[in-house]
Nucleic acid binder design. Structure first.
Lengths: 337, 337
DNA sequence: CATCGGCATTTGATCGTTCAAGAAGGCGAG
DNA sequence: CTCGCCTTCTTGAACGATCAAATGCCGATG
């Protein structure tokens, strides 16, 4: 087994002091060109890698970012987090950071985990997903001066923090405009209950405002429910029982959309099958949507993750760019609309 | 902002030396009961948490486990990794370990990442998923004496290592037995090409052996292809074109099963719809299967993850239990079989 | 010619923990 | 009484890096 290579090993080999090696790594501009090259050669030859623990002890920085991994409640929507995580890990790597996972059952227990992680591992930053009104987590982190980014904009927070979000309203607006363009006039909406779901409000307003802008009264053609396939089917049945039922429906999730599809009797059978009698659009472009030919709004998750890392490294490396990022989703057209 | 609480702070408050505090944490049995309690009170009162970086520098152990996060190639099967990761994080937490993510494009690049992570972060162990024949990663890790566990048994490795796996053959065997019990006699199989996919071989043999044991000749009722919905549909069409087509088919993945479903003209529409004319069973019990009412073989991913952590902590904490773990899957019955 | 300032590099201290060795006290045996 | 042993606790050193300050060198300046 090879001996451990430390900064002292490199220093001896390059005939310089430890500090000069450290400078080559952390402040190359203050080292003379010829010395820098000599040290660099020694580093390469020995395969030296700076020990993070030692560096961390001195600097108090760990180059570690924490993200919560959630149990995939619904199952269908789980892939959203999955794709986000992958993008996050990849971008963080290229910025010299690593991603650490943690779990939590609720916001308050999550705060305990923050405390734990900060105390034990000196975490540099947190990425929070799924912010809601009056989120206690952001207040706690901000109060401690811990850097963090949220994927999801802050809701009613006085002192704003860096965030990245996808323009949910624009997503449903795109869906609605597409349906209008293909001749639909009675376009319904199935989403989440408003006071509790901030994102739900966004998605509904995209549908609502687009119809109003087109001179159409959305009327009572909308329903709100918790997420789920069965719930979507039930709500769609209600809409179909209206005096003048919708000819198309925009849904806040692929789960709801899948339920709606079943209610309209569309037998989803994959690409190449005849279109459903009632058009349906989902949200999130999950694998289920792709598999079944469900038209759905796609979030640029890889980009969102990358921007989260950009914002964080901005704060951590002292060139903050505190402008929030709002990304545009795109409509993926398939059989159902 | 509160001052940083170190082991010295605790020691002063409890009127003992640093080392005694350290002993309370790491070797309580050598500390007198009354002293132990006094120190513990100080720890609780101050909210002290041992700094991992400092501990790691002295002991060389980081209490960190690394797992690779893969791009969800297919999309449908992505949720498998997702669920595994969640279980891993949760079990690791309760064992005092944390999970770190990394990405890699291929096995050789992954080995570079190993080197990086070991050099910089002193990782304690790796969890590898998806082992194949002649995997260079296990050889590299074993050669360096780095602890690791694989989710997936070793294939043709001379010097075995700890592993956890799900009995793939038993999964397809259960599916096949269920089909036999419900009266089917001509049962086909759609899976992955054999020499390249070790898991594919397992899954096929479960189907094959069960039929043989029931006195039925599997004949030519099987097809092998790469994973995907379109591929499944195509292979199923071939099977249906046989002189005596199958009345049921077992598939190596939900993707293939979904394709097969489309080929048999079954319009998957969710629970409550009439059964398909040809029975179809998938593998992995993904959200898509649940959403469409596809009968599928379910892997106990949470348990598998927990056992991976158990094996690792066994090695790391010096009470190795080097018996591999083979878990039984279960068949989730839905509409399609 | 002495002094100064700037540059490149080195030296000693430090982060918070655990290891290895040593010290204090009590107790029983010779 | 002395010695050795055990239990319990303390002291100094070390892990590998960075920070802050000091050093040597050089040419420019008064």
């Amino acid at each position: 087994m090879a001996q451990k290579v430390t900064i002292a090993t490199v220093a001896r080999r390059a005939q310089v002091s430890r500090q000069t090696v450290s400078n080559v790594l952390n402040a190359p501009h203050i080292v003379r060109e010829e010395t820098r090259r000599r040290v660099q050669e020694a580093i390469d030859a020995l395969g030296y890698r700076a020990n993070q623990a030692a560096r961390q002890m001195r600097t108090g920085r760990s180059r570690l970012i924490a993200v919560r991994i959630e149990p995939t409640r619904d199952g269908i929507n789980g892939s959203v987090l999955d794709r986000f995580l992958h993008g996050l890990t990849e971008t963080a790597e290229s910025a010299g950071y690593r991603v650490m996972l943690y779990t939590a059952t609720d916001a308050h227990q999550e705060i305990d985990v923050f405390d734990d992680l900060l105390g034990a591992y000196d975490l540099d930053a947190f990425v929070l997903t799924g912010t809601e009104h009056g989120d206690p987590r952001t207040a706690w982190l901000a109060g401690r001066g811990v850097p963090f980014v949220t994927f999801g904009r802050p809701w009613g927070v006085p002192d704003p923090h860096p965030w990245v979000d996808v323009d949910n309203a624009d997503g449903t607006a795109q869906a609605t405009r597409h349906l209008l363009a293909t001749g639909h006039r009675r376009i319904g909406y199935i989403g989440w209950p408003l006071p509790s779901s901030a994102v739900g409000g966004e998605r509904r307003s995209g549908w609502y405002d687009t119809l109003r802008a087109a001179g159409i009264d959305p009327g009572g053609l909308h329903r709100e429910t918790v997420d789920g396939i069965a719930e979507g089917e039930w709500m769609m049945r209600e809409l179909l029982a209206e005096p003048t039922p919708p000819t198309a429906v925009v849904c806040a999730s692929d789960s709801l959309a899948l339920g709606a599809l079943q209610a309209v009797g569309a037998a989803p059978g994959g690409p190449g099958r005849p279109a459903a009698p009632v058009a349906v659009v989902g949200f999130d472009d999950t694998p289920v949507a792709a598999a079944l030919g469900l038209t759905s709004v796609s979030q640029p998750l890889g980009t969102a993750a990358a921007r989260c890392v950009d914002l964080l490294t901005g704060v951590l490396d002292d060139h903050p760019t505190d402008s929030p990022v709002l990304l545009q989703p795109s409509l993926v057209l398939r059989r159902t609309a």
